[in-house]
Nucleic acid binder design. Structure first.
Lengths: 193, 193
DNA sequence: TGAATTTTTTGATGTAGATCAAAATCAGTT
DNA sequence: AACTGATTTTGATCTACATCAAAAAATTCA
């Protein structure tokens, strides 16, 4: 880790949820972990870059959005103690169409794809963890697709607040409406019911 | 493989696209591969089961659907020479909410989750392949979510025929409309434009 | 504290796609 | 070829949500 002041690397904590990490692997991951302090509204990633990382938010909240017909569309929100990354750069080594922006002053711990791939080579045991993470992402994305495929706006709203109930306290309704694929006005009306 | 007549296991062909398979691993996978001949309209998997497999269609076509408000909704279609599976049973060991049905007389090669997990244990190298497959599934699911999130019915139709152009020759429009999240009537009107 | 800015709500109207009903076309079987 | 059932199209009407405009409420900050 670049800054020795940060004991207890949260990235390692998250990774070890998925499978066994040897002491050496832990040491190597820690050595390659970068710590960032970001202000509200700063970006971690902008579209077109394929600077890619897995990262964990120690404190703060992010939105991931992309541009479609001159508008920003929110793809998802990330809170503390989950592992994240932008799929296309990490999994396909292609530039991201997504942007990642902090919505509060935030602290994150990240490891770059290049370092990660090096670690997969050095510690093949990590492939199991990498597999489990990707499998979990599949489950989340499938749920999201089903929600968008079959639910009404009202149902999608209910699904969201069931999954991430504290989001409403941290993010404005415009951002949430965009995630749901509806306008701010419609969301306001849904909430009045 | 249960039936020695089937030389050149297509499951192994597909798996080896993602990474290196040792000779022993190949032999063990082959030994655990099951071959099925299925008639049109038969099911491979019904909701509630967690009989789970990765499988490859050697010949034929499938639809994967689930029930929502008394109706069947098509989640996706599978054609020859891709590797498939139902996410929830394989990745979370939970019963499927999906059904898998053959839309033509079909031949498939499958390996069960239990055998697969055993093989992950015996040949850890397989975790890399498993990781790559799950990562590819993530990319496909993310694309699908973006399409459902931001595209009009017409755009979703165009996206589908770009991705699976021969689907139109093999599957009726009712099934395609259901995949797109619109009614058959609306699809008919879109196609007249 | 109050002016400026951002966020949320309310109202009037427009539209993509749904629903219901029925006709037309196609495919399979004898 | 003709009967049967499935698939696709067409038409009339309805509805969920969008758009545009503006007011109201909340938040930020000098």
């Amino acid at each position: 880790m670049t800054d020795q002041a940060h004991i207890g690397n949260p990235l390692i904590q998250q990774l070890s949820k998925y499978g066994y990490l040897s002491d050496e692997a832990v040491k190597e991951i820690d050595r390659r972990t970068n710590y960032f302090l970001k202000k509200k509204n700063e970006h971690f990633l902008k579209e077109g870059q394929n600077l890619s990382s897995y990262f964990v938010i120690a404190k703060g909240i992010i939105r991931v959005y992309f541009r479609r017909n001159e508008k920003e569309v929110n793809a998802w929100f990330g809170e503390e103690n989950q592992i994240f990354g932008s799929i296309l750069p990490i999994y396909a080594n292609k530039p991201s169409f997504e942007n990642i922006q902090f919505l509060e002053d935030s602290e994150i711990y990240a490891i770059s794809s290049d370092d990660l791939n090096e670690l997969y080579r050095l510690y093949p045991e990590l492939n199991l963890i990498g597999r489990k993470i990707a499998e979990e992402v599949c489950i989340i994305l499938e749920e999201r697709a089903v929600s968008l495929h079959t639910e009404s706006a009202t149902e999608r709203y209910e699904t969201l607040i069931k999954q991430q109930p504290n989001l409403l306290n941290r993010i404005n309704l415009g951002h949430i409406a965009s995630y749901l694929g509806i306008t701010q006005e419609t969301l306001s009306r849904i909430r009045k019911l």
